[in-house]
């Protein structure tokens, strides 16, 4: 017993001393700014900056090949800290949130078939273009929820993905994984969105979804600069998002929502300013 402990201990000690010596002799010069940058970055390794993990971004920053404002999860204060470490001027990139442009959960949108397969949206999409009749709607199987490193996506009980604006950092992982491209990025200040992603004609949309956009153009008539209608689908022009709220009441299918007032029906999330008075 003693022999076992001693012999393994000795081998370990010799190895440790040898490695310690080698570490000094073969030390690789690492720029101290790289270490400082790594400490300041969030450490989520989400890859939104386009580099392999925070270490990759830190290395590129020090090499001077990338801007300091490429880390969306870090936010403005990480940008400021990185700017100080690297001694450069910095302007924070405007924050963006992801939005699921669909409200058609199982109660409101028709299904083609009963899908009993792998709980993955890409897999479901491969089978006859997905279980939903609507070609652009959210499938509700949760691939985006699993892809989100910040736990910001909720799957409602009725099968709809809803993104929590408090937790979203704009890393775009959900956008990349969604096979229906129903998640889009929008500036943080824009709270009004048209929650529909179907380019089918209005009559067709009405058949398969109670809350789909029928391109009736009433929103555009109410707020001409804030909406554009392309290919039978209305979208908010985010540069003019402040004017968009007037059209919410005009929409016959109620597919336009203001996230400041609340998340889509069925969601358990509360809006950020639920207790604060907001401009009607």
């Amino acid at each position: 017993m003693l022999a076992a402990i001693l012999s393994l201990g000795c081998i370990g000690m010799i190895a440790a001393v040898a490695l310690g010596f080698a570490a000094k002799k073969f030390a690789v010069e690492v720029d101290p700014r790289e270490l400082a940058a790594m400490e300041v970055l969030p450490g989520a390794n989400c890859g939104a900056c386009g580099f392999p993990g925070c270490a990759g971004y830190a290395k590129a920053l020090v090499a001077g090949t990338i801007d300091v404002n490429q880390c969306p999860p870090g936010g403005a204060d990480v940008v400021a800290k990185l700017a100080r470490i690297l001694g450069v001027e910095a302007a924070a990139a405007s924050p963006e949130f992801a939005v699921v442009l669909c409200q058609g959960d199982n109660r409101k949108a028709q299904l083609k078939y009963n899908y009993l397969g792998l709980e993955d949206c890409t897999a479901a999409q491969r089978i006859a273009d997905g279980p939903k009749v609507c070609p652009g709607g959210c499938l509700g199987l949760g691939s985006c929820q699993r892809a989100c490193p910040f736990d910001a996506i909720e799957m409602t009980a009725a099968g709809l993905a809803v993104i929590n604006r408090e937790k979203c950092t704009g890393c775009r992982k959900c956008v990349a994984v969604c096979p229906r491209q129903v998640i889009r990025m929008a500036p943080a200040e824009a709270t009004v969105h048209v929650l529909c992603n179907s380019h089918d004609k209005g009559a067709v949309v009405r058949k398969y979804c109670q809350v789909g956009c029928i391109a009736c153009q009433l929103c555009k008539k109410a707020a001409p600069d804030a909406y554009k209608i392309e290919n039978m689908l209305a979208t908010v022009v985010y540069e003019h998002h402040s004017e968009a709220a007037v059209a919410i009441a005009k929409c016959p299918t109620r597919c336009i929502r203001d996230f400041a007032e609340g998340y889509p029906d069925g969601s358990a999330l509360l809006p950020a300013d639920a207790d604060k008075p907001h401009a009607a």
Binding site: A18, L19, A22, A23, F26, A27, V28
Partner: peptide
Amino acid sequence: LVEMVIQK
């Protein structure tokens, strides 16, 4: 050890 040497 090999890792350290190769990195250098």
